[in-house]
Design a protein around this nucleic acid. Sequence first.
DNA 1: ATCCAGGTGTGGG
DNA 2: CCCACACATGGA
Length: 254
Amino acid sequence: MRTLLDLRLTMESGQPPQFFWNKTDGKYWRDFSHGRCYLWQSGDELFFSGCDERQVREFLRLEDSLEEIYEVLSGDAVLAEAVQRFRGLRITKNDPWETLVAFICSINNNIPRIRRNVQCLLRNGQMPRPEELAGAKLAHAKLGFRERYLRETASRVSSMDFGRIGRMGYDEAKQELMKLPGVGEKVADCVLLFGFGYLEAFPVDVWIHRAMRAYYGISGVRKIRQFAREQWHPYEGYAQQYLYVLVREHRPRV
DNA sequence: ATCCAGGTGTGGG
DNA sequence: CCCACACATGGA
């Protein structure tokens, strides 16, 4: 399959696939109930096995028109350069429950350890459903203070229609997510962006904070979110991801 | 030893 | 509205 895509950047830029997928000999893979799925890229050609094309297109959001998105983002010099430098970086579409678990694990944590935490929770490569996780032993995952958030959230989600959130408007969906323990504004936005596919979500973490202050002279979550909406709507999520990789390139990762 | 990591919850001005 | 602090864990 031929597409505008940088698979490595997409899979290894702090999105859920970095926590759930493995990499061997340049190929990304993950086990599903129906078997092991592989993804790899050679030149600008995308290959896959063990999964059907429809799933791959949804997972990598190949229907998003990057050219149209780049047009919206290129209104300022910073992002104009970022979309050139990281051309082909895409937002991924992941399972909402898995995404919620991963970003509860992400609280005041670093990417390598988030991955270890998440991998410890998997059973046969799959994230246990909320009702299973609510009653499971979690100590081996070494989640620290996040264990209580995760267990309580799992319990709450198991007795609600979680998928219903994905059918709400962005603001209502976010409000609903933030009722869960351990889910503040940042985690909610990550779940909405990477799990439910709301491209207008703009997660503000420490790196985005630095980026906005350094590149635009703006600080304060409130002002940052307002600016993002004015500049990049409805593709705030893409703007965020390009800013994230840009600012992290300037400072070495942990 | 001290700081930091894709923050949240709580308590205070 | 904003700010300070605790919260486990482990790498730098």
